Amino acid sequence: MQRRSNCPISNVLDIVGDKWSLLIVRDLLFFGKQTFSEIQTSDERVATNILSSRLEKLENDGLITKQADTRDKRKKVYLLSEKGIDMLPIMLEMILWSSKHDPDTNAPQDLVKRIQTDKIQLMSEVVSQLKREG
């Protein structure tokens, strides 16, 4: 991948800086979505062609893996890689920032409080759940 610069923020933006990639990561991290059709049903309603290209990009960048569904070999399942799971602290901080600065956000207040008071344990639980699913 060609970088615009060696700036760490620019590096992250080169990987997930479009308007859809972090939403896909969100769905995999927090909502247990794993298939194309599950991800497509998110509130933001990403178009199928864009979803396909973003999933391919996230896979090429090493944030997700794609494998055959164990129940239906014709379907593909998308799972976060270790690199993708490492986005968890960033995503939690984004939830905190949004809940602080946008009174209309739908961030569950229980989750916001948990991030503020028990982030390490919360991250451990989320990671354990992801590893059970994968």
Rank of each mutant, 00 (worst) to 15 (best):
Q116D: 05
E93D: 15
R114D: 12
R4M: 04
N49S: 13
L13A: 13
E133R: 15
I85N: 01
S5N: 11
S99R: 14
E59A: 09
V127M: 03
G134D: 06
L13K: 12
N60R: 15
R3I: 01
N49Q: 12
D14I: 06
P89D: 08
E82S: 10
A47V: 12
C7P: 00
I115C: 05
K75F: 02
Q34P: 00
D43P: 04
S10Y: 02
V25I: 15
I95A: 11
Q67H: 10
E125N: 13
N60K: 15
H101G: 01
F31I: 00
D110Q: 11
K66V: 14
M94T: 06
S128A: 15
D110M: 03
G84Q: 03
S98H: 10
R26Q: 11
T48C: 05
E56M: 09
R26N: 10
M1I: 08
L22V: 11
P89E: 10
S5A: 14
E56P: 00
T117P: 00
R74E: 12
M1L: 08
G84Y: 02
G62M: 10
M94C: 07
W20A: 04
N6Q: 12
K75T: 05
W20R: 03
P89N: 08
N106W: 04
A68H: 14
H101W: 09
R71I: 03
T35E: 13
V127H: 05
I85M: 15
V126E: 06
R26W: 11
L130S: 08
N6H: 12
H101D: 00
D102C: 11
N11V: 14
I85A: 08
K113T: 09
S21R: 05
Q67F: 01
L28G: 01
Q129V: 00
I64G: 01
K83S: 07
R71A: 06
P8W: 08
G84L: 02
D27C: 10
E125W: 00
S10Q: 13
L80V: 06
A68K: 15
L79R: 14
K19S: 13
S37A: 11
I15H: 01
T65K: 11
M87S: 07
S21N: 06
D110Y: 01
L51D: 04
F31M: 09
L130Q: 11
L13F: 14
R74A: 05
N49P: 01
L23S: 07
R45C: 04
G17E: 07
S10N: 10
M87F: 11
M91I: 06
I39E: 07
S53R: 15
G134S: 10
V25F: 03
L58N: 03
H101M: 02
I24L: 12
I115Y: 05
R114G: 00
I24W: 03
P89Y: 07
S21E: 04
S128L: 04
K119C: 09
R26L: 01
T105F: 03
P103Y: 10
V77A: 00
G84N: 03
A68L: 12
P8Q: 07
T35N: 07
E38W: 02
L79K: 14
R45W: 02
I50K: 10
K131F: 00
M1V: 09
N6S: 12
